[in-house]
Design a protein around this nucleic acid. Structure first.
Lengths: 312, 312
DNA sequence: CATGTTGATGCCGTTTCGGCAGCGGCTATA
DNA sequence: TATAGCCGCTGCCGAAACGGCATCAACATG
């Protein structure tokens, strides 16, 4: 079922691979065929689509416009295909998710397992990245659904939902702070802390608050893995910071304690956004999963905010 | 600049004309070429796209799905073209508007004249229809912007804005009612009235109210043209009903008087919706006009509701 | 300077496309 | 009931588009 002219498909492959010959390898055709289609396309548009560097091709401004159009066409073709398929028989397809690390502990595995139980023919691809990489992958059409810190998002993305979770300190149950209900940042900084590196968004949430304090925090461990930070905290190495999303299971086993941060009487929020490409209608089976994801995150938001009310 | 495979274009033409030979005439190709492309398309999709009636072709369910995809592709191609064109030079293109009659008196001509003054290369096509026909034309991709009574709209349309205007009685200045500030329906029905036929949405607004009254209205004139109804009212033939949108200019010349309807103490609202296809990103020059349209209608809504406050 | 990789091009066989003419099926009209 | 008109479909054939191969110049790398 390949209706669209080869030029469209070749252009798409060249954009992704950044090279005509690489695209030809992917497409199983000769590089000359790809080269000619690109030249023809440029002649019809009346403007070069790529800048020819010695090491490959880069999109020009017009090229990026065409890339947007081609992406819209191919993604809508996917939707059409899945719509036709769902007419006769069960859903079938792949949901591609790009998300930040805090989801991998329980939210995503729970949801995927649940969804797979209902629709066996739907498969999943997930890729864990930093927040800005998540948005970029989405813009480039390399993922269907993106979950990231709710920063400013580019206009070609649509924020489907925005959920806020309390940022808190994570310590082992033997830690001196473990018996408190909430903690302030100053209280935490009296102990060794496990800091997030700048590539994690937690860093950007905490840095402004730390900067406001008069004291300089004592030397601490730095890491760029939420998983690692959590395990370190469980071993009593120090105080880690994250949302409760990332420690759902461990918290249940009572090895870890989650203490909501209290910043001058008000909570510290971590805003999580769910994104999709704006210029796109999702296939039904992806839309269905998206709705479950939004519902589930909303449910967790409600539960956690009920467990830790606004004022300690 | 025709990148997309001929099959796409031919399918689109066949859908619009409802016949392969007619499509071939429009496309300036032989009917056999069109027939073969359609057959090839059906083979690739694996399902018939049209039902062959003796008198032409009708879309099947799968055909309608493909039509939706093809419309998305071709409309997005238009947007891409206009984006490229706007890179080098002025805007150029056609805004196609489908709207109901009440806009033709002042809103639309004013706006188009204003916009043409700023962007000469943008031309306009307008088609006046009933509300449901407006939505249908929009769904079929025969118009870019639709303005209609805000009924339930199909899911493939997006309601950009919703503006409410007071329905009122329209009489000549010599009419006995002309000196009132507001009127009730009962007061109007004591005089000859000019009724809207069911094809006008005013009919559906007033009918439920009339049905509630005990009296049966006296024999009246019926018409399906807002223009005609207004002119009849100006000649003292009777009481017409419409929103003030349709009588802006005549009212200013003081030949006609607009009396907001008062229904048991509350106004009678006429809801006007502005619609576009949901699965579409508008070209910049259309988006620009759309924004002006929304702003202007919002302005009129504000002015009129200020001129005729809620309670008389 | 040698080597590998890049995109572009000329040549040629294959595939696809479109135009022409004619087929059978259907409707409307006389 | 006969006929004229329109419908979509199908061989046939020439033209155009496409893809594969070999090769070229330009550039980067070592």
């Amino acid at each position: 079922m390949r209706f669209h002219s080869p030029a469209i498909q070749y252009f798409h492959a060249v954009r992704r691979t950044g090279s005509i010959r690489a695209a030809a390898r992917v497409l199983n055709v000769a590089s000359s065929a790809v080269s000619r289609q690109i030249l023809k396309l440029e002649q019809e548009v009346g403007s070069p689509l790529f800048e020819r560097n010695a090491r490959g091709l880069t999109l020009t401004t017009v090229g990026e416009m065409l890339a947007r159009h081609v992406m819209n066409v191919l993604q809508d073709l996917d939707r059409f295909r899945s719509d036709v398929a769902s007419l006769s028989g069960t859903w079938r397809g792949t949901v591609s998710i790009a998300c930040i690390e805090s989801l991998t502990e329980s939210v995503l595995p729970d949801l995927i397992a649940l969804h797979r139980g209902r629709a066996r023919r739907v498969s999943f691809t997930t890729e864990v990245k930093g927040s800005s990489d998540v948005l970029e992958a989405l813009s480039r059409g390399e993922a269907d659904i993106g979950i990231a810190m709710a920063l400013r998002h580019p206009p070609d993305l649509r924020q489907v939902a925005l959920k806020r979770f309390r940022l808190g300190a994570v310590v082992s149950r033997e830690h001196p702070l473990a018996r408190r209900k909430t903690v302030t940042l100053e209280q935490c900084l009296a102990f060794p802390v496990i800091n997030a590196l700048p590539e994690l968004s937690i860093y950007h949430l905490l840095q402004p608050l730390i900067a406001q304090l008069s004291e300089t925090p004592e030397p601490a461990i730095q890491a760029n893995s939420i998983d690692l930070m959590r395990e370190l905290a469980a071993r009593g190495v120090g105080v880690a910071f994250q949302t409760q999303l990332g420690i759902g299971r461990l918290s249940r086993d009572s090895q870890l304690v989650f203490l909501p941060l209290d910043n001058a009487g008000s909570p510290v929020w971590s805003d999580l956004g769910i994104y999709v490409r704006a210029e796109r209608t999702l296939p039904a089976f992806i839309e269905s999963f998206l709705q479950e994801l939004v519902r589930e995150l909303g449910e967790r938001e409600r539960r956690e905010n009920a467990a830790y009310p606004q004022t300690s």
